[in-house]
Amino acid sequence: MSATASSSTHSRPVARPEAKPGRTVRFRVKRCDGPGKPVRWETFAVKPEPGANIISCLQQIAASPVTVDGQKTTPVAWDSGCLEEVCGACTMVINGKTRQSCSCLIDEYAPNEGDEITLEPMSKFPVVRDLWVDRARLFDALKRVKAWVPIDGTYSLGAGPRESAEKSESRYVMSTCMSCGCCLEACPQYQLEENPDKWPASFIGAHAMNQARLFNEHATGAVLKGARLDTLMGEGGVNDCGNAQNCVQVCPKHIPLTESIATIGRSVTIHAIAKWFRG
């Protein structure tokens, strides 16, 4: 990984607290049966196994969905995929902060008897059910900035330009984005928007600007640089960023998002001036 991955709120403490074996941990979960349905809070008691994470505790809850008040309820729904912090599907708000639940270890978060962990779905995406949200807008943003290398066509394009090791090295960290949405959840400029018609004018978010930079700096991907900058110049683009820099603090992949945003800012400045003179 890159040396830029220096500061992160998720860096694990060197000396971890010793977790008490056989303890009971309480999970306070924000629940919702579906879009438009009312929100309620339910608390569950779980005896986590050694090395347990949030997902394995949610599995335990699903096996016997009874609240601490002895109320029988439905299993808590969540989304997950890789279970190794590379797909981003399991992102939720844990103790008030956004992060992946699969890599959230209970021994660290709740080492003592009676410790409580609060689980909420991300607030910037529509809830599908309980902790499961729909991140469609995040992927739509990637389409808007054409976050790909254009190689499709009716004939062979031949070999691409040579890439230097330095350049691919510098792009590597940008490419580790897993579209988890943490940077959007923590961003004060990114708001919940359920209406897809409004997505183009709403703030696009740090992840898309980072992907635009990644592909702008790719020798073949750079073919689409102008189109990407046109999108990012407009409403909802880079100018809507308020520079709170929360995104870079919460990105689990330590992507230098604020550097990507500034790079897009510079590209857009140059692009706009060039366009003004060129017509």
Binding site: P188, Q189, G242, A244, Q245, N246, Q249, V250
Partner: peptide, 24 residues
């Protein structure tokens, strides 16, 4: 007009940069 598009969240993310964003 621009400031209205933001929503402060310093309670959850009390980073220095976020505070400056809010105080700005």
């Amino acid at each position: 007009y621009y400031a209205r598009s933001g929503s402060a969240n310093t309670d959850r993310y009390p980073y220095q940069g976020n505070w400056r964003y809010r105080v700005q």
